[in-house]
């Protein structure tokens, strides 16, 4: 059996999500290669070659892949993936965009966001916002799979010595182009890989008040997240949303501030190791999943917390 893992990267470096996908691929009992598709992506390829347990790294370095346009990348993955039994990718925005196109090109099903590998053809995945876990068996000879990264440990980023091979295939579908992006720049850790996350909800009342979370986040080395309510209200940008349709996080410590705990939010954070809830409504559903609940006005509790940690 052989598995091709699709790398998530920014050309210069490899994103941590790739390491979780490698672990899932190894659980399928397969030899694991990595495909890095990008432009001037030598840095990402070298990082991929250092990942423990990887056989070889295939690098498709072409301007058509610079911005991970799904129309182009899917053609490449379908071609390179033809030689593999499984094509596995982390469930990042890029891979969620491209992988179903790959599956359709290969005329196979995609199994989205698996959380465990039961056997070579059987997987578990959450449905209904995580209220139900389904076990699904695939009848396809070739499997296209995305991986919920929080459900798998990261493979060791060092210790491997994979060979690096260039892939010539240049696929430019010519039907889409990149215009621009607005990417949040932050010195804080990435939301999906941070050890500690502190999130604010509607109770924060406005975007200005999110500054109250920043001091605590800086002291703890935490990332800052938000509930859908806070994003919808325009307090903070969409990339901070934690939940069923936002980012799925599972840090060692998750601090929910002024978040009531809607099902959709819980779906994005309930696998955190330790959950703290700060809310003035003692009946808020968030307290049903919190290890430590503090019933308090966040405008009193946050400054005090910042001073005492």
């Amino acid at each position: 059996m052989s598995t091709l893992v699709i790398a998530e990267h920014d050309n210069g470096s490899l994103k941590g999500a790739t390491l979780n996908a490698v672990t899932a691929a190894q659980a399928m009992g397969a030899d694991v290669d990595i495909l890095v598709a990008g432009a001037n992506c030598g840095g990402a390829a070298e990082a991929a070659a250092a990942v423990a347990g990887v056989g070889k790294v295939l690098v498709a370095d072409n301007a058509a892949y610079e911005h991970q346009l799904a129309e182009n990348v899917s053609l490449l993955i379908a071609e390179v993936g033809a030689a593999y039994d499984n094509i596995v990718a982390p469930a990042t925005a890029n891979c969620k965009n491209a992988m179903p196109r790959v599956a359709a090109l290969l005329d196979v099903a995609q199994i989205s966001e698996i959380t465990s590998v039961e056997s070579a053809d059987t997987f578990k995945r959450p449905i209904y916002a995580g209220n139900v876990i389904a076990t699904v068996q695939s009848a396809d000879a070739k499997k296209v799979i995305t991986v919920r990264t929080t459900a798998f440990d990261a493979a060791a980023a060092e210790g491997g010595s994979a060979s690096i091979e260039a892939v010539d295939a240049a696929h430019d579908a010519g039907i889409s182009s990149f215009v621009g992006e607005e990417v949040a720049v932050s010195d804080r850790p990435e939301l999906t890989s941070a050890d500690i996350v502190i999130s604010g909800g509607r109770g924060m009342q406005n975007g200005e008040n999110f500054k109250m979370l920043e001091g605590i986040a800086d002291k703890l080395g935490a990332a800052i997240g938000a509930s859908r309510a806070a994003v919808d209200a325009g307090f903070v940008p969409n990339d901070m949303q934690v939940g069923q349709t936002g980012k799925i996080v599972a840090p060692d410590l998750y601090i929910a501030v002024g978040i009531s705990g809607a099902i959709q939010h819980l779906a994005g954070m309930k696998d955190s190791k330790v959950i703290v809830a700060i809310n003035k409504d003692e009946d808020a559903p968030i307290f049903q999943v919190a290890d430590y609940g503090l019933v308090a006005d966040l405008f009193d509790a946050l400054p005090e917390l910042e001073s005492k940690i």
């Binding site: 099903a109 139900v132 068996q137 009848a139 309930k270 959950i275 609940g293």
Partner: peptide, 18 residues
């Protein structure tokens, strides 16, 4: 292409302390 073998509730999280 896929068969749903079974479904189960997710691991329950116990409420902690206040």
């Amino acid at each position: 292409h896929l068969t749903q073998v079974s479904v189960e509730p997710p691991a329950e999280r116990q409420a902690g302390i206040k």
